[in-house]
Design a protein around this nucleic acid. Structure first.
Lengths: 290, 290
DNA sequence: CCATATATCTGACTAAAGTCAGATATCATG
DNA sequence: CATGATATCTGACTTTAGTCAGATATATGG
């Protein structure tokens, strides 16, 4: 009853019935689930028929028929792909958009219902983030992004907030040597964001120069995604990017209050070196030759 | 992308595919899901056919046919109910028990797989407990139990552990006035455990006397179940039990470090009174007339 | 242009799930 | 013991999902 496996299975049961309830509410719109899923996939921006088929794991015959039924309802239109007339592209009609909005409203209502009945929203959301990250760990995408895009700024905001909590003296970005966004974009450097589905859960910056030297900055993993070895994966990608850019020497600074980070660096070939800058926050310095 | 509703929906998507994977592994045993569900319901102790039908939400015709197919496979036997020959009672044959064990093994393997790929098991389990409690809040059962049963002892153990964490001087049960189990059982008192599915998530003791006076002891709500107003519900049940037992005066002691508890008492008609015992831990004392 | 590969569609099929209207046996009650 | 209620079963049916073998149209590389 109280062993870990039982607890996981209790969670499974609880969640299965909640998920089933959402499916049932979808059926309330008078359309089989298969067709509703295709409609929603299109609504969420998947227009290529092959892509939808792949995403939903459908047989081509079944997919074709489901699309036809949505067309008969006047919710979807298909046309040949611009570059390849064998492929088809599906779009929602005006009525289709309304219907999609109705499904969205159902999903949102279910999500809100879950949240409003709980007086500790933040704890509940944190728990959901943690579990979603654990369940989708295989599908985390490490994408190079502009350090000024929304996802990157979200990560940096969370990173600064965490430093504020973990440094006894707090953390003020303006006192730190904030890297110029230009230095963390090709061709000088890089900025990598780890995305789990639609949620950014980690980042790392490679702040380059034009003479084969770069620094690793802003390595952050969301609390919900810790324990998944994401820090290591981010560092691997950053190092690959550095190699691609012809960088031969990498350095980074960190603080001994961030114990996990120090451990990660030490176990992945970084060597501790003396202080190489006068930033007030770091007290540990590392270097790695590529 | 980062608003609460999106985070809940990301969680839903992650969990839906995990749940689907378990269903698929169940299909691997060569039996449609409907029949597998019935077999598992029986294995988990639901023998009454009507009860299974209700639990799985099946039509009586469908249920009948699924049972028949399990009988044909030699996994299940049915017989008339002892007290009411219209009802049928299903039991697993020896082969049925083996087959059920195989399904259990699949479920356990899935649960273990989830745990072992995560290096922060405890955090993951705590998150699962929290979410399972939130999702099943409507189905929490507040049952009167013997204070020495497994569930009660689990609650008390967690309660003591939490006091140890929250009191700056720690907590040692032997220094506290540990109520005799006899005083928390009918006819003198009562002990109530909140069960969410198979997991105890809260408790409260009513330590009675034989002269219309009782004390509330050991009010505890699992961290995972906080925010669901369970403390209030436990207190309501304890008060009802007290009324049934003819108790007219209730008292309790608590510690100001347990702020939520103090707030709960104040908002539900309890009145602060001077110290009425010499237990070293409490520093706040309340009374309520019924 | 030809051969081959690819994307979708169509027709013919099966399996699973679910619905519904009785039939049958048993129970509770006056 | 007659009556109506209840639990299950049976037969006849529908819907949904999924499979599979071609048919059709288009793309690609020689």
């Amino acid at each position: 009853m109280l062993d870990p496996v039982s607890r996981v299975r209790r969670f499974n049961r609880a969640v299965t019935s909640a998920v089933g309830a959402l499916d049932t509410s979808f059926l309330g719109r008078g359309r089989p689930l298969g067709a509703a899923r295709v409609l929603n996939a299109i609504g969420h921006g998947r227009s290529d028929v092959a892509e939808i088929r792949d995403y939903l794991g459908l047989d081509s015959g079944l997919m074709s028929r489901l699309l036809r039924s949505l067309e008969d309802e006047g919710l979807v239109e298909t046309e040949a792909h611009q570059d390849d007339a064998r492929r088809r592209v599906a779009t929602l009609t005006r009525a289709g958009k309304r219907e999609f909005a109705a499904y969205e409203a159902l999903s949102n209502a279910q999500a809100e219902g879950l949240l409003t009945q709980h007086s500790q929203r933040d704890a509940l959301l944190a728990a959901m983030d943690l579990i979603a990250s654990a369940l989708t760990r295989e599908r985390v995408a490490l994408d190079e992004m502009d350090p000024r895009c929304e996802e990157a700024r979200y990560c940096l905001g969370e990173y600064y907030a965490e430093l504020g909590r973990r440094f006894s003296q707090g953390f003020d970005v303006s006192l730190s040597r904030d890297p110029d966004a230009k230095d963390m974009r090709r061709p000088r450097g890089s900025f990598i964001v780890a995305m789990s589905d639609t949620l950014p859960i980690g980042c790392v910056g490679l702040k380059g120069t034009d003479h084969g030297y770069a620094e690793i900055k802003r390595l952050w993993v969301a609390p919900a995604a810790r324990g998944l070895r994401l820090g290591r994966r981010l560092m691997d990608v950053a190092e690959s990017a550095a190699r691609e850019l012809g960088i031969t020497l990498l350095r980074l600074d960190t603080n001994s209050a961030l114990a996990e980070a120090g451990q990660l660096y030490r176990s992945t070939g970084w060597r501790e070196i003396p202080r190489f800058n006068d930033d007030p926050y770091p007290d540990l310095f590392f270097e790695k030759r590529l």
